[in-house]
Write a protein that binds this DNA or RNA. Structure first.
Lengths: 343, 343
DNA sequence: TTGAAAGCGTTACCAG
DNA sequence: CTGGTAACGCTTTCAA
């Protein structure tokens, strides 16, 4: 559809409607201060010409781009997608548009993305987690916008935080296992170098076991995050090969848990009678699997919603607002059959 | 992090480096035509000031925003996420940024999104499917950019097409069922009013059955797309309640197929011995489920990659290029245990 | 309610 | 390789 004529501008519309560009500009805004009549003329002229406002020019002139930048580790992940949905829904009343990027669980890629996004002059930035490259952190600190870190509780936040404790979530799960009578408990996660949240869960897992006086050695790192069903499956094989007496396994995500569980079933092990399996993230999958899989709900959608609220609040406080306010969510255990010890 | 000082501009950098803004502008570009020495000075000055290029201004001035707009029906869908990944990867060499939006399978919401995106003056637009509101179509036609419709083969394309025939994909599945000896075959999909691709699959399903001289009545509409595992499960109950002699079921997606399959298992029906189940989309899930689920791979990632190639090609042909070239992909059947008739 | 003028920060264009 | 100047299309600001 590449024609040659230049697209109409506001002054074309103004000319056709017989008014000034300023009047057009105002008539096109929501809270239009223009008389009914002129506004009709203007709208008609715009329609005739096929005029579309140029936000690039508007943004340059007004100093407001209407962008919110957000980075998530992976776009192909229901949990992060839920957070983005929450963010979008929370921003629906505003005219803010989301500039979404995914980092592939790579801090360097995150840095690259943030650098790109900063050029767009977003009015706020939402990032996943509190672990960034030094340069990335510096960029975020120097950027003159609200920064919201989510999905974690960074010890030293850049600005605002809307998250939860991954370590504590793992602890909740360990206690659930313990309550059910399991004592030899393993953990399946990804390599610990790329997924800080996965690492926190693993650390929380180990710490909780230690507190209970249980063995903490049954840890398998299954590859580069995000780990897949396949990696969950092979990790389970590895785990049982090394520690055959393992009674229960916590997986870093529902997907890997499902992979691990089906691997058990293929191997003739009954879940939960022979081995218990739990996941993380409260995917639909864990609810519908047979047996249903115990998991942790971190309220991913809510996280996005709260991030949006935070951004809006900060925008209204126009200007100064140094306080670093955390919105903390408590992950909820969803106990299901997959970890219910046969009496 | 809201400070009061205005962020540094290019002219601040120029001043500090003792050159003109033009030299700064050039030195900051990839193919920099600036002497080693001045460029070092400039980079140093930029670093000192914490300068970040303002793409808004750059875009206004150059007439190139560096945006590619893309809309998908749902962000929480592995298939569409794969297409976005393909698009991103395909665009990696360029400096183009993706402006992503999701429509919730709602043509009106798509129209709203496209209208918003158009204001950002994207250099190309990728949309899912060929079914738009009249106004949305008009907007896309009048926009002076490459438009790529994906995930379908519209009869009357707006511009470029990178897709596949959903109807034909369903036909392939029907023939697979037929080859396996199944004759009483049902279809589970969402309401037909919101998902044109789901509707095409259903129509292709019916047409293929009719060609084979089989009954075409076993159709269940399970709710607003995208249909979930739960809806797949309840739809299966409905289907069997109405037509108890059904031997096989094609589902509009792998997720609903999984829901349907687990529902069978809960009801004590063996898959595939008592009933065959197939899905659509080649999710990991269908590979790891027990039994593994027969599905169709539509090469979602490839679709995005090809869309990117199309966009790049059109950008190079600078200007005229009226031809509507389709990149057609052939969906591949992945036959698995869930539809393998016990001999 | 409307308009005129002055930018917003960058790059295109043309000189040197 | 470098610099001056004029846009780019809009909104801010100040007047009327």
């Amino acid at each position: 559809m590449t024609s040659l004529k230049k697209p109409p501008t506001m002054s074309d519309v103004a000319k056709l409607a017989g008014v000034s560009t300023m009047t057009v500009s105002r008539a096109l805004k929501p809270g239009a201060s223009a008389s009914r009549a002129t506004r009709q003329k203007i709208l008609a002229a715009a329609e005739t010409l096929g005029y579309v406002l140029d936000s690039t020019a508007a943004g340059l002139s007004s100093g407001k781009t209407g962008f919110i930048a957000a980075t998530i580790p992976s776009i192909n992940n229901g949990n992060f997608a839920d957070t983005v949905r929450g963010l979008t829904d929370g921003l629906a009343e505003t005219n803010l548009q989301i500039l979404l990027g995914y980092t592939n669980y790579d801090a360097t890629e995150e840095e690259r993305l943030i650098e790109q996004f900063l050029r767009r002059r977003p009015e706020a930035i939402v990032v996943t987690g509190g672990w960034h490259t030094d340069r990335c952190r510096r960029l975020l600190e120097m950027a003159d916008v609200t920064v919201v870190e989510t999905w974690d509780l960074p010890e030293n936040p850049i600005d605002e935080v809307v998250g939860f404790s991954n370590a504590n979530a793992a602890k909740v799960m360990v206690h659930h296992f313990h309550d059910q009578g399991y004592r030899c408990i393993g953990f399946i996660g990804g390599d610990t170098t790329h997924d800080p949240r996965g690492l926190s869960r693993r650390q929380g897992f180990v710490a909780a076991l230690a507190e209970l006086g249980l063995e903490t050695k049954r840890l398998v790192a299954a590859g580069r995050p995000p780990i897949t069903m396949r990696e969950g499956a092979s990790a389970l094989r590895d785990l049982l090969a090394k520690w055959p007496d393992t009674e229960a396994v916590m997986c870093v995500s529902d997907l890997s848990a499902f992979g691990a569980m089906t691997e058990c079933q293929r191997a003739g092990l009954r879940v939960p009678e022979d081995i218990a399996i739990a996941g993380f993230g409260a995917y639909d999958l864990s609810e519908h699997a047979i047996p249903p899989i115990t998991t942790i709900d971190v309220s991913a959608y809510e996280l996005g919603k709260l991030a949006a609220e935070t951004i809006i609040r900060r925008a209204q406080d126009a200007g100064a607002r140094p306080a670093k306010i955390s919105r903390k969510i408590d992950p909820q255990l969803i106990a299901r059959k997959s970890t219910s010890r046969a009496e």
